Amino acid sequence: MMTDVLVAHSSDVEKASFYKKTYLHVALSILAFIGVETILLKIVPERLIIAMFAQRFAWLLIIGVFWLASILATKWSLSQSKQIQYFGLAFYVLLEAVIFLPLIYIAVVYSGAQVIYQAAMLTIAMFAGISAVAFTSKRDFSFLRNIIIIGGFISLGLIVAGMIFGFNLGLWFSVGMVILASATILYQTSKLKDSYSTNQYVGASLQLFASIMLLFWYILSILMSRRN
């Protein structure tokens, strides 16, 4: 962790600069994700994409590797070295592009590219609304932390159980995950000033980007289920 002053203890100018850089990096991460995903869809063989989700134990392995690599990327993004911070963020964007590859492929082939655009617009609108609530409300959202942790473990357990035993979690699970992702964004946004120093905007942007992608995943899943 860097030794800079916390955002909460910084001047108004430094706070504004931190928030500006954080959200700029979130936007750049999303654009990078779109670019990498587009490239992967073009260069990765179709049979390999199908194999990623056709074999549930292979998908379970992918999720496990993704989880471990995410922890590493987060650690890098909070390094004292700016180069390592950016490497961590770039690495995480690549991870998200890989993990999203089967879902995006299914959406394009079976539901049409329009559903991806709709999911993206809904995700952006929800993120903007939640962020506005976090910045304008004077409420303390720290109570969400335990809810998010417990909900995260429960959802992960259900996902693993679904893969092992081969049952579909269904629409309501996706709705629950949208609520969980929304709560995570609300909590993370409200705690930005208390969790990061003024030079940790790369790490802060990674956390927000991760929550946005989780929200996008389940919004897209819901829209796809309504079309199929």
Rank of each mutant, 00 (worst) to 15 (best):
Q83M: 14
I99N: 04
G88R: 01
L61Q: 08
S77D: 08
S77H: 07
A69E: 01
I62R: 11
L60R: 06
L68N: 09
F87G: 01
L60A: 13
G88C: 04
E96T: 08
F66Q: 08
L72P: 00
S81M: 01
L94I: 07
A69H: 03
V98E: 01
L61Y: 06
L60G: 12
E96Y: 03
L68Q: 07
V65K: 12
Y86W: 08
S79D: 14
W67Q: 12
A69M: 06
W67Y: 12
L68V: 14
L68F: 14
F87C: 03
Y86D: 10
L61K: 08
F100T: 00
A73K: 05
G64E: 11
F66I: 04
E96G: 02
Q85E: 14
Y86V: 09
A97L: 00
A58W: 01
W59Y: 15
S79L: 02
G64V: 10
V93H: 05
I63Q: 15
S79E: 05
Y92T: 05
L89E: 05
Y86K: 14
I71C: 12
L78Q: 12
A73E: 02
L94E: 00
I99T: 10
A90I: 12
G64P: 14
S79V: 05
I84K: 09
S70K: 03
A73N: 09
Y92L: 04
I71N: 15
S81D: 03
F91L: 13
Y92C: 06
F66Y: 14
Y86L: 13
E96S: 07
A58H: 02
A90F: 09
V65N: 13
L95G: 12
L78M: 11
F66S: 08
F87V: 07
T74F: 11
K82Q: 13
F66G: 06
V98R: 04
L95E: 06
Y86I: 11
S77V: 04
W67R: 08
T74W: 11
I62S: 13
T74P: 00
L95N: 06
I99Y: 08
E96Q: 14
I63N: 15
F87D: 00
Q85N: 15
Q80M: 01
S70L: 04
L68E: 04
A73T: 09
Q85K: 15
F91M: 11
F100K: 02
L94M: 12
L78Y: 10
L78I: 05
I71S: 13
V65L: 15
S81H: 05
K82S: 07
F91N: 08
K75L: 03
P102I: 00
W76P: 12
V93W: 01
L61F: 14
L61H: 01
E96R: 02
S79I: 02
L78H: 10
K75Y: 11
A73G: 03
Y86H: 11
I84Y: 00
S79N: 13
W67F: 14
P102A: 00
Q83T: 15
L72W: 14
A90M: 09
S77T: 06
K75D: 04
V93S: 03
W76F: 09
Y86P: 07
L61E: 09
T74M: 11
V65Y: 09
S70I: 02
F66P: 04
W67G: 13
S70E: 00
V65G: 14
L60P: 08
S77R: 10
L101M: 00
L101A: 01
I99A: 10
L101E: 03
I84A: 01
L61S: 12
W67I: 15
V93D: 04
